[in-house]
Nucleic acid binder design. Sequence first.
RNA 1: GGCGCGGUAGCCAAGUGGUAAGGCCGAGCUCUGCAAAAGCUCUAUGCGCCGGUUCAAUUCCGGCCCGCGCCUCCA
Length: 470
Amino acid sequence: MPIQLFDSLERKLKSLAPSHTDGVFRFYNCGPTVYAPAHIGNFRTFVVNDVLRRLLELEFGADKVKHVRNLTDVDDRTIGQTQKEKRPLAEITKKWTDKFHADSDALNCLRPHVEPTATGHIREQVDMIEVLIENGNAYRAPDGSVYFKIASFPEYGALSRIKERELKVTNSAFDADHKDDIGDFALWKAYKPEEDGDVQWPGPRTAAAGRPGWHIECSAMIKKHLGETIDLHTGGVDLLFPHHENEIAQSQCCNGTTFARHWYHSEHLLVDGTTMSKSKGNYYTLSDLVEKGYSPMAVRYALLMGHPRKQLNFTLESMHAAESALGTLRKAWARFATTASATANKPLAAQDSAPVSRLDRVIDALRDDLNTPAALGGLFTAMNEISDGTATFADSVAFGRALSILGIDLSEKQNFSIPMEIFALAEKRWAAKQAKDFAAADTLRKELATAGWSMLDSKTDYKLEPLKKA
RNA sequence: GGCGCGGUAGCCAAGUGGUAAGGCCGAGCUCUGCAAAAGCUCUAUGCGCCGGUUCAAUUCCGGCCCGCGCCUCCA
């Protein structure tokens, strides 16, 4: 069964396969703008793409997948941030790039093979813009900016069906006030001293100095790192229009070939039933959730609980469910891993086929349009079957493989430290318990709870855990 | 107004023309000084509403109600 993914352009499921003779599957995922911490809605897309990357590597081979994801490090928002903070652009984008990497790592997302930046590809962008001007697809505006002329590209709107839409004409849509047509978009923005600080580069021939428009960076970086035709282009739905529509226009007019053979868009993450925004105060970053006591792995799990092409409503309750589910998996795996080791000496062939196929339902669910909730369900179904004490070595291997495709790391990472006074209280309680002074032990347990800690006894030992914050 | 998506148990969620995966929560049992943990067991005669097609619909068709997203900041 090949990997099938919904194609946003043709609006149907299509099989994925490399088209280049080298057999390398080329895919590009639109990355973050590094002017602030990425929120978990952003990470939904990146986690989904990470599962896709892992699945592709399983399918085509680890060395037969080339994954490129950009960093937008110059645009209205990054520049706006430099003005707000009165700091150099590079300093701000470095800070948030580092944070993005740290969060991605914590979420167990594989780094893309190439992570190009917009500022690192000014030359490539200018080159493309010049070709577009020469081809008559772009024009210089009076202020020295350059715009793409959508009327010059008949297929414009195929992806987003923009021709069937009514463009809402507002004043802000005409912000640039130099466009010939409301649908035209900026390829190059002329330098504005009062807004842009010291951010500017020499522009395309005939244009003013300034900076690239947002859309052109992806077209230029894709051309450089993946070629003129790529096998898959992904991103969040919000990028479908205008960003991806514009990329198609730019690239196809410049290169004269099909830009992306397949388009895939993941849906929005909602919070409390509505889209995330700072003004609504429903804006979570990874750090926010870690601060509340949730593990990054639980965040990843929570982001995979919904089908990637369906809106997913994120709540703290779902975080709790994710954390619990992860705990169940962790304990079950530990349990049957030990029973599996007992069978490890048996010949593999004798125990291979059936058990491995039990876990195939996880991979199969993923192959079927990246159905992550079904994959997670399959994981538990298999787990329940294996947990009856009959787990074999092959089960254990297959289970581990299924987990790794989902990028779920079950190793326990203690992300808290125990303050000395808490440890002292716990020791005191343990001593009281050993002395069978249960009244004192209970009082101490309450004290620990008040301080935000829970003490878990076993026969010979105890464990301290912080209570979850609301 | 235009484009699109969704409504399945307390919550999340998959799925199929032939009678509902899975997770969380909850309950019961075992275990246990307490509290947990762990293990086992249980939890939708029904899939927004109304019609239609069909031997059979949650699954197809039509209408309606409700929710959400997008329409040039946006993963």
